[in-house]
């Protein structure tokens, strides 16, 4: 078995090498499609991370009227926490809010001065509500609007964030669509070109195939070198695609803000490199083998 495998791999390696330009054409188109696949995966992962990072900062703040007692607010907190979509509801008292405000504006003497002039504490007590899922904020605000404590609520701030999230979600969805269709188009072109390459290889090897049949070579022994040629296309292409991916990420690194991603693009890629390379290898080998298989079904008479 290993003997046959060894001879087969040797044979397909020679084919790959001797076909020169044909191999380059096949590999470059397959590389392109795998590059798009890889780039899309990186983009999806990055956008996913960005989205969760943004989502972590999203909350609904429910501000209560100044005369509402702390007990009423605690009851509202319990009420909200019992709602299944709510992850947490954090109570921020007037004093806490003032302290936070002062801290945030420590470098702004004008603001602090005006605060002093007003006298007392103008800030409202609030509940900071976080949802399990960002799409649930809409429901939560609706819930608050109908809740038993609705008359005690001064205002709810959510609308601003909603727009940002929606837009982000939309962009991600759109670019995912574009990426998928690009990858599919390139994959189709790659299949056609590999198909053609294997067809020509079959034609070149016609006398050899005939002799193999005559001396009683098993069908698999005749087929395997051509299948392996497809495998080689897949492997070489995914390695080249990874190289290009690394280069382009190195170039794009400076444009992507470290703040949203919390680390650089390259280091983000390296944390996922094996997974992405694995997917690329699988896709590449599948496309290569698939193309040579249909070429053989059509042109190799055994």
């Amino acid at each position: 078995m290993f003997l046959v495998l060894g001879r087969t791999i040797k044979e397909s390696g020679i084919n790959f090498w001797r076909n020169g330009w044909l191999s380059i054409a096949s590999v470059s188109v397959l590389t392109l499609s795998l590059y798009v696949v890889g780039a899309m995966m990186v983009m999806m992962m990055v956008s996913g991370t960005v989205l969760t990072n943004v989502e972590k900062r999203i909350n609904v703040s429910v501000y209560f009227k100044p005369d509402v007692s702390e007990n009423t607010i605690m009851a509202a907190k319990a009420d909200l926490e019992s709602y299944s979509e709510v992850k947490s509801a954090q109570y921020i008292s007037k004093e806490q809010a003032l302290a936070d405000f002062k801290k945030n504006n420590a470098g702004e003497p004008v603001i602090l001065q005006s605060l002093d002039e007003i006298g007392g504490n103008p800030l409202l007590a609030s509940l900071v509500v976080r949802a399990n899922d960002s799409s649930q904020y809409q429901n939560i605000t609706e819930y608050i609007a109908k809740a038993s404590f609705k008359d005690d609520v001064s205002r709810v701030n959510y609308v601003k964030n909603k727009e940002i999230i929606d837009r982000l979600n939309n962009i991600i969805k759109q670019s995912r669509k574009v990426g998928v269709s690009l990858a599919l188009v390139f994959a189709a072109v790659a299949v056609l070109i590999i198909f053609n390459t294997i067809r020509i290889t079959l034609y070149i090897h016609k006398p050899e195939i005939e002799v193999m049949r005559l001396v009683g070579a098993s069908n698999m022994f005749i087929r395997l070198p051509f299948l392996f040629e497809g495998v080689i296309y897949g492997i070489v292409s995914s390695l080249v695609a990874t190289l290009f991916l690394l280069i382009s990420m190195k170039l794009a690194d400076s444009y992507v803000s470290v703040a949203v991603l919390s680390k650089s693009l390259l280091s983000f890629y390296f944390s996922q490199a094996l997974f992405i390379l694995g997917i690329q290898l699988l896709a590449g080998i599948f496309l290569g083998v698939f193309s040579s298989w249909i070429a053989m079904r059509k042109y190799l008479k055994i």
């Binding site: 078995m1 003997l3 046959v4 001879r7 006398p207 050899e208 005939e210 002799v211 193999m212 005559l214 001396v215 009683g216 070579a217 098993s218 022994f221 005749i222």
Partner: peptide
């Protein structure tokens, strides 16, 4: 129906290789 790029030895050996002989 000999293979032109193989030697006499290789042409005959090929028939055995194709059948998985050691």
């Amino acid at each position: 129906k000999l293979l032109p790029k193989k030697t006499v030895f290789e042409n005959v050996a090929y028939a055995l290789e194709a059948c998985g002989v050691h």
